[in-house]
C-alpha cells in the first residue's frame, strides 16, 4: 500500500444559486481498500461525486487523482485517467445487450477510431475477441453469464445493478466510484454485491462508495467520511465514526424515520 493517497480533494466548494452544496471539503482516499462516503440526504455527497468525476465544475478547490489535477477536466478525461463511476439509477443503455454494454466499457478500443477500424481490421477484430473473453469472465463473477445476449432493458433491477458493477470493472479503473450501489436492493442481493466488492478489494481494487445503508458501511468499508450540509464532519473507521455524537446529531436532526430505517 502506497502512502500517497489515490484521490485528494482539497477545499472544494460549490454553490447553486443561494444554496451552498459543498463548503471547503477536504478528504483523502488512500489506495487499497473500500472507502465510504456517507451523510444525510442533501449533505452534498452526489455533488461531490459529480465534481470529482468532472460532471460538475467546482467553484473553488482542487481535485488530484493519481497525481494529476482533474478539477478542470471533462468527465471522459477523468474516466480515462482511471476514475470511473456508476450512477444511482442504473443508466446502462437499455437498447443494447448485456455483452454490448460490457464491450462498450472496454478501455482503449482502437475500433473507435474510424481509420483504424477501416485499415487495421484484423487487429480490431482480435481486440474484440479478447474483450469478449474478458467480458464473459466478469459476467461470470456477477452471475450474469447466461444473460449475455439479453437487452439491458429486459433485466430486473437487481441484475441491472450487477451489470453496472461488471461494466465498470471492464473499464479497469484505478478507483471505482459506486454511487449508492445498494439503493433499492433486497438484502440477499446486497449480501451478494457486498461479497463481490470485498473479494475484488482483496484482489487489489480500490473503491469509493457513496451509501446510505449503514449495515453495508459497517460491514464492508475500511474507512469512512461523513458529510453534513456540505462539510466534512468526521472521518475514520466506521465502527468508531458511527458512534460519534456529531454524526448521530447530523442524522437525528433529520426525521427519526431515516435513522431507524438505516440502522
Amino acid at each position: 500500500m502506497t502512502a500517497e493517497p489515490l484521490l485528494r480533494v482539497r477545499e472544494v466548494s460549490k454553490r447553486f444559486g443561494g444554496v451552498v452544496a459543498l463548503d471547503a471539503v477536504t478528504l483523502d482516499v488512500p489506495a487499497g481498500g473500500i472507502y465510504g462516503l456517507i451523510g444525510p440526504n442533501g449533505s452534498g455527497k452526489t455533488t461531490l461525486i459529480n465534481v470529482v468525476t468532472g460532471f460538475l465544475r467546482a467553484d473553488a478547490g482542487t481535485v488530484i487523482f493519481a497525481g494529476t489535477r482533474t478539477e478542470r477536466l471533462a468527465p471522459h478525461e477523468v474516466a480515462r485517467l482511471g476514475l470511473c463511476r456508476t450512477f444511482q439509477a442504473s443508466l446502462a443503455p437499455q437498447r443494447m445487450t448485456v455483452l454490448e454494454n460490457m464491450l462498450l466499457a472496454a478501455p482503449r478500443q482502437s475500433g473507435e477510431s474510424l481509420s483504424r477500424a477501416a485499415f487495421a481490421g484484423r487487429a480490431v477484430a482480435a481486440e474484440e475477441r479478447a474483450n469478449l473473453d474478458k467480458a464473459r469472465a466478469l459476467l461470470g463473477i456477477v452471475n450474469l453469464a447466461a444473460k449475455g445476449d439479453e437487452l439491458a432493458g429486459n433485466l430486473s433491477g437487481g441484475q441491472r445493478k450487477l451489470l453496472g458493477l461488471a461494466q465498470i470493472l471492464m473499464a479497469e479503473p484505478r478507483l471505482i466510484l459506486l454511487d449508492e450501489p445498494m439503493a433499492g436492493v433486497n438484502p440477499i442481493l446486497m449480501a451478494e454485491i457486498s461479497s463481490v466488492i470485498r473479494r475484488l478489494r482483496d484482489e487489489g481494487r480500490n473503491f469509493l462508495v457513496v451509501e446510505h445503508n449503514m449495515k453495508f458501511i459497517r460491514e464492508t468499508c475500511d474507512q469512512v467520511t461523513v458529510l453534513d450540509a456540505g462539510r466534512v464532519i468526521a472521518e475514520g473507521e466506521p465502527g468508531e465514526v458511527l458512534g460519534r455524537d456529531e454524526v448521530l446529531r447530523a442524522y437525528l436532526a433529520r426525521p427519526k424515520s431515516e435513522t431507524a430505517a438505516h440502522g
Binding site: T53, A74, H76, A79, C84, F87, R95, P107, I168, A171
Partner: peptide
C-alpha cells in the same frame, strides 16, 4: 450508447 444519454459513455471514457 449515446442515443440514451451522454452520461454513461462519458463515465466510461
Amino acid at each position: 450508447a449515446m442515443r440514451e444519454g451522454d452520461a454513461v459513455p462519458q463515465a466510461l471514457g
